[in-house]
Design a binder for these strands. Structure first.
Length: 207
DNA sequence: CCCTGATTCGC
DNA sequence: GCGAATCAGG
């Protein structure tokens, strides 16, 4: 591939639009980001001053209009579980919560009444299965994983980090597991187990 | 780790 | 002129 006029044009255009060298390289094809950067310098447009740059804080051109997670489906069967007398520690409240007296009286509401955009776009909402739907073994490894979790933020999620949400998104005690995700899967080994269960086994355990 | 842009330097 | 390798930084 060589720098034909068209290619240089596209390069100039994209560069002035604030696209990154790698994005431009991808678009052009046949070149690496290094090639793009090198060309940019030779063309003398290092100073990203291609377009007028009105002053609009150029919203970091995110390649695609990442569709902010649609309002996630209502927490499945959450309310139903609430009434259960026994303290149904919803799996979420981490760290042993030594029965701190006077647990919010208005707790029966669905756990995790999230606002929006809590789960990265594209990924299915992690089910918050009621405890009896999870086998003891799976539950154990899930809790163990929670301890080792990297506690990363939404922005730190990547292709290979577990995207299992932990904590209440309404509080600052919210983060994502972040452990190494199973190749191709959105979660780490432990959370994959919780998220993807054979229908049969799941049905059998449900009450 | 992943990704940025900047530089260098042999070709 | 080109761009891989490498550097510096987030």
């Amino acid at each position: 591939m060589s720098w034909t006029d068209e290619r240089v044009e596209l390069l100039k255009k994209m560069w002035s639009e604030g696209q990154s060298a790698s994005q431009i390289a991808k678009e052009l094809g046949g070149v690496t980001r290094n090639a793009v950067i090198g060309k940019v310098h030779r063309l003398g447009l290092s100073n990203r001053t291609g377009a007028e740059e009105a002053e609009a804080p150029a919203p970091e051109p995110v390649a695609k209009p990442v569709p902010v997670a649609e309002a996630p489906a209502a927490p499945r069967e959450a309310p139903a579980a609430a009434p259960r007398a026994e303290n149904v520690t919803p799996l979420r409240p981490r760290e042993a919560q030594p029965a701190p007296a006077a647990p919010r009286a208005e707790a029966p509401v669905a756990p995790v009444p999230m606002r929006k955009a809590i789960v990265p776009a594209g990924q299915p909402l992690p089910p918050q299965p009621s405890l009896n739907e999870i086998s003891p073994e799976t539950l154990a490894s899930a809790r163990e994983a929670e301890k080792r979790s990297r506690k990363i933020s939404l922005m730190e999620l990547t292709e290979r980090t577990c995207k299992w949400p932990i904590g209440d998104p309404a509080t600052d005690n919210f983060y994502f597991c972040g452990l190494p995700a199973q190749p191709g899967k959105p979660y780490c080994e432990a959370h994959v187990q919780v998220a993807f269960q054979p229908m049969s086994a799941r049905r059998d355990r449900r009450r």
